[in-house]
Computed example of a mutant assay.
Amino acid sequence: MLGTIRFLLSFCVIAFHLTAAIPNLGQLSVNCFYVISGFLISLVLNETYNFKIYPFAANRFLRLYPAYFAVAGLSAIFCITINGYAQFHTSWTESAGAKSILGNALMFPWAFFSDDVVPVNFIGADVLQSESPLFRLVPSTWSVGVEITCYFLLWLFSSRSLLAALSTVVVGSLWQVYVIKSGADPRLGYFPVPAALLPFGLGALAYHIARITKPRQLKDGHAVLFTLLLITAFSINWRISTTAGQIIGSVYYYTNDLLAFAGIILINRSKQRGSIGKLDKFLGDLAYPMFLGQYVFGFIAWKIIGTDNPIRSNQVFVLGSLITVIASIAVAKLVDRRLNNARNGIRTSAGQQPLAGNVV
């Protein structure tokens, strides 16, 4: 049921960004994404690729970049041909400099190129900092850049053993303590790579705990029930967090990570059969292009509604999310599915059969 959860998390991020009226939902959803990614990448590194870097990297490229290039291409076209693009998002207000060109071409540098909108410069290096907003064709790719960097760290160390995963959790926790105790910008507990080490490490830890304890695979009905319970717990924690002020560094911020960690251990290998299984995979396939396209297609919704209306509103969210889902279905069918044979061939070349129902 991880596909359904990932779809719902993408939807929560879209609601957070396009309404600008639902506090904390985006940060909590992204961190849940990170925990799930930490688990799934640890799973395939250990059970499909046996830590062989070239097939793993090739498969990650085919999963992430073609869909990105499709959305980024649309964004470039809209930027050139439709008036008002710069009004919709800060990342579209400046012309593209050298950092922006490199980030838009390779995506992973966004984990390090920083501005006031996305403060990922955790070492404070002047060469990585921009005084004006960087031009990101797809604004949400800063998070994908962080994910790509963490994939490398999972391959290099964090996913290789229980002790390595636990060490990553400790390092990620120490970074959070540093941000809180030092009086640093609290956003450094969310945006940069060190902040992502805690949820990614928890995901890797969940994999190794599940492998050691070998929990019984849940039956279809039980898997659905536990998924609903996890969604409910996430919703309750989010709702209570809205009364807490600053979410980053709060008890609700870390409770969210622990809920995702516990939920993955419970439902990680449950395989749904029949129509439920097909729906779960279908929804999971949409999560990534939805996450990429939220602002691009939200802009189209705003133009349809009328630019005399607010840039962020429930109307923009409803129409924008609808357009985003439709566009994501097109990306999944026209781009991702055409690459399935190539990706399966890469998995096989790694010396392992593709995992059944593999969503990564």
Rank of each mutant, 00 (worst) to 15 (best):
G345E: 13
A195E: 05
T242A: 15
Y207F: 13
V169Y: 01
Y54L: 11
I22T: 03
T93A: 13
I247N: 05
L225V: 03
L8G: 11
I248C: 02
I53F: 11
L228V: 01
F152E: 02
Q352F: 09
T307W: 04
I231V: 12
T4G: 08
T19W: 05
R216C: 05
N344D: 15
A233V: 10
D285E: 15
L292E: 02
F291D: 00
R187D: 08
Q129A: 13
G26Y: 06
H17D: 13
F282L: 09
A76H: 15
P55A: 00
C32F: 11
I22E: 03
G274V: 03
R338A: 14
A20Q: 09
P186K: 09
V146C: 13
A330D: 11
L8K: 10
L8H: 14
G97C: 09
F69W: 05
I329K: 14
L137R: 10
N46R: 00
T242R: 11
V331A: 06
L45E: 04
S91P: 03
Q129N: 15
Q352A: 12
K181M: 15
D257A: 11
V144A: 04
K278R: 09
F51S: 10
P23K: 08
P109R: 03
D116E: 15
S140N: 15
A233C: 13
N341G: 15
P289W: 05
L322S: 06
I346Q: 01
L8C: 11
Y207V: 06
G306V: 00
S159F: 01
A327T: 02
I5H: 06
G97K: 03
F297G: 04
S182K: 12
S235M: 03
F282K: 13
P119R: 03
I212M: 07
L205E: 04
A332K: 14
K278Y: 14
I248K: 13
S241R: 13
P55K: 02
S313N: 12
G351P: 06
E94G: 14
Q129I: 08
T141L: 00
T243V: 14
K52W: 00
L153F: 11
A184P: 12
F191G: 05
G351T: 12
I231N: 02
